[in-house]
């Protein structure tokens, strides 16, 4: 019995080691894939990786095509992208493509049959969760009016210096579009570190286009959300209209490291453009490195009518 078990294990392990190299991808396959994507990818497309960590593709994919692959990207709605190129490596150990597709395929329609490049498998999907984007704060922040709003209502401006709105105070007190990690996800977001106390850091956008949805998404960058101690205070991020009426707000308590989002359905009959104020506040700014995205979006095919 012991002999049989050992021989079975030995043979199984040997088979695994001998067959593993044949399940990997050679450079030629990546180059052929890159050629295809270079020819066929359109603006508004995205390349989604499966398994999520197979980022070697970044070396080869045309830089104009965004690549998405992070821990959790399997369930990313990818709202900003109309079409999704799915790049899969189904022969890798523990890569269960059919299980992935059973979840990914909801609200996604296949536009082509899978194509093989060695062990790479490329498929194109229409993304029914796509929402046309009319505003992204990370692209429009240069034109924003940024200031510190003190509890008494007075304002201290944060002048724009080429790429950044710099506020009076420590260097982290600025507003700029930056790449950050929101719980493993790379996000180009608006860095807005709270000034502390009851003072708010405000970015005011005039000519904000109101379409179907206003969506706010943010979180602590890197590991900052994981810290929990008494001195750490919640951070609040909110949105106000021109009259100062709060549309909604998000709370990020200490210890909550996941990104949070909220969306507001624009009522019918709203003016096409207006002013909107994005603000953040935390009593104690310690370890409250915060980044936020603000979008104005149209309706997705999968959105309820």
């Amino acid at each position: 019995m012991e002999l049989a078990v050992l021989i079975l294990a030995a043979v199984g392990a040997l088979l695994f080691q001998l067959t593993l190299p044949g399940k990997l991808v050679d450079e030629q396959a990546y180059r052929a894939l890159a050629d295809t994507l270079g020819r066929e990818a359109k603006p508004g497309d995205v390349l989604l990786l499966f398994p999520w960590w197979t980022e070697r593709a970044r070396l080869f994919v045309p830089p104009s095509l965004p690549v998405v692959g992070y821990l959790g990207s399997d369930t990313d709605p990818l709202r900003s992208f109309a079409r999704i190129w799915l790049l899969a490596q189904p022969r890798l150990p523990k890569a269960n493509l059919s299980d992935f597709l059973s979840r990914f395929g909801v609200d996604r329609a296949s536009l082509s049959s899978p194509r093989q490049f060695g062990n790479l498998q490329l498929s194109l999907y229409q993304n029914a969760l796509f929402r046309p984007q009319f505003f992204d704060a990370a692209n429009s922040y240069a034109a924003a009016s940024v200031y510190l709003q003190l509890p008494d209502g007075s304002r201290r401006p944060c002048p724009f210096e080429g790429t950044t709105h710099r506020c009076p105070g420590p260097p982290e007190l600025h507003v700029a579009a930056e790449w950050h990690e929101l719980r493993y996800r790379p996000v180009r977001c608006l860095w807005m570190h709270p000034p502390g106390g009851a003072t708010r850091l405000v970015a005011e956008f005039s000519d904000f286009p109101f379409r179907s949805w206003v969506r706010l998404e943010g979180g602590m960058t890197w590991d900052r959300g994981a810290f929990q101690r008494d001195s750490i205070t919640p951070i609040y991020a909110g949105l106000e209209d021109q009259q100062g009426k709060e549309l909604f707000r998000l709370e990020f308590p200490p210890g909550a490291d996941e990104a949070r989002s909220a969306q507001w359905r624009v009522p019918a009959g709203s003016p096409p453009t207006g002013t909107i104020r994005l603000w953040v506040q935390s009593t104690n700014p310690e370890l409250r490195d915060f980044c936020v995205q603000l979008f104005s979006e149209g309706r997705a095919a999968a959105d309820p009518r």
Binding site: R58, P63, V67, E181, Y184, P186, W222
Partner: peptide
């Protein structure tokens, strides 16, 4: 350490290794 890689993206202006 994912934040560090995205800091490189930010500073170097590229996401392509």
């Amino acid at each position: 350490f994912r934040e560090q890689e995205f800091e490189i993206w930010q500073e170097f202006g590229t996401q392509t290794p």
